[in-house]
Amino acid sequence: MSLAKLVQTEARLFARDTTSVVVGLTLPMIILLGLGAVPILREPSADMDGIRFIDYFAPSLIVMSVGTIGLTNLPTVMAGYRERGILRRMRATPVHPAKLLAAQLIVNLVAALVASLLVVASGRIVYGIPLPESPLWFALAFVLGITAVFALGMLVAAVAPTARAASGIATVLFMSAMFFGGVYLPRFMLPDAVARIGDYVPPGVQTLLDSWNGETPAALPLLVMAVVAVAAGATSARIFKWE
């Protein structure tokens, strides 16, 4: 009962925040639609194993969707709730603030899922980008990747004393994830070593790309995502302060 109410409330607050809606939910889709409007990016290219740039770039936009929400929105909001005494205020009620945290996780997970679906669906509808060809592998890669990113986001929320500090730390993580995820520079333009590191940086753009193209993703990056998720999640749960 109280969790449902909390989810409803947090979802409303998310929807009222124009930045989180526009940037978090729709910017990756808008970028994809914008890039696809450039004819040459819709031509198959030898640089990208003979596929089109927009096909190659779509997984990076999934990285962006998950990263914006999990690494930027989630930790900033949670640290702000601590800073403003909202978590402490809940400790004064019969419902533990862990439920508010759970509600935040649910709302942000749904938001990241929606943002990713918008990328996949708009790409499919507008530019004929095929749907992920190994849906089960893609689902596994997505779930492990998003969990690792959200666990890192929670870790930031746990250590940051203020919303401003959370936003600062989160920006560094977010930009790293974007860089290694090939959002800033397409990965075929990155030095090989950097691109290989990128395979292991959450949420793991290569596993998304492989499973999207119908290949079986490598096991080690998936395992790394699982380890990051468990380690960061457990650490943040242990050190998280309610006030």
Binding site: T9, L13, R16, D17, Y81, R84, G85, I86, R88, R89, A92, T93
Partner: peptide, 15 residues
């Protein structure tokens, strides 16, 4: 059964 009003606690601005 206890109602508590805390010093300096706020709510989300958009609530």
């Amino acid at each position: 059964v206890l109602g508590i009003q805390l010093q300096e606690s706020r709510l989300p601005d958009r609530l």
